[in-house]
């Protein structure tokens, strides 16, 4: 690898750390217990705000069981103490914290860090 490429890569990582979090919407755009989907760097991410919690959960919007981009449209709830979303298509549950599928231990969705800055929801991806 030549030095130019190396340099370029470093440069890029630098930039990433700077803008690690990207603004996606206002906190008020999210309604309690209702998902929304954000497009971040070409990736579809399902966002959830649950009642009595400030934290915004972010997991893949893609449902691996149906191959459809639909998880943001699932019903949110809790099962055995874990916050979950149920796929609207075949009803598997995914842990909002970890992305773990409760019905199939081999399936884990990507999760993403989020924060709310001055009323703006930001995601790192």
């Amino acid at each position: 690898m030549n030095s130019l490429a190396e340099e370029f890569r470093e440069d890029r990582t630098e930039k990433m750390t700077d803008t690690e979090f990207m603004a996606v919407c206002q906190i008020d755009d999210l309604l309690d217990n209702l998902g929304q989907c954000a497009l971040v760097k070409g990736k579809q991410i399902a966002l959830f705000k649950v009642s009595d919690s400030e934290k915004i959960y972010a997991i893949d919007n893609h449902d691996p069981f149906s191959d459809a981009n639909v998880l943001s449209r699932g019903v949110v709830g809790d099962l055995q103490g874990k916050l979950v979303v149920a796929s609207p298509i075949y009803k598997q549950h995914f842990d909002l914290e970890t992305g773990q599928c409760l019905e199939d231990e081999n399936v884990v969705l990507d999760t993403y860090a989020t924060r709310v800055v001055a009323g703006v929801v930001e995601i790192s991806c």
Binding site: L31, D32, V70, V75
Partner: peptide, 17 residues
């Protein structure tokens, strides 16, 4: 937030979303 996606979007979700 209680409604299944079908009731929520007042339409039947198909296999491709």
């Amino acid at each position: 937030p209680l409604q299944d996606t079908n009731d929520h979007f007042l339409a039947n979700m198909q296999k491709d979303g």
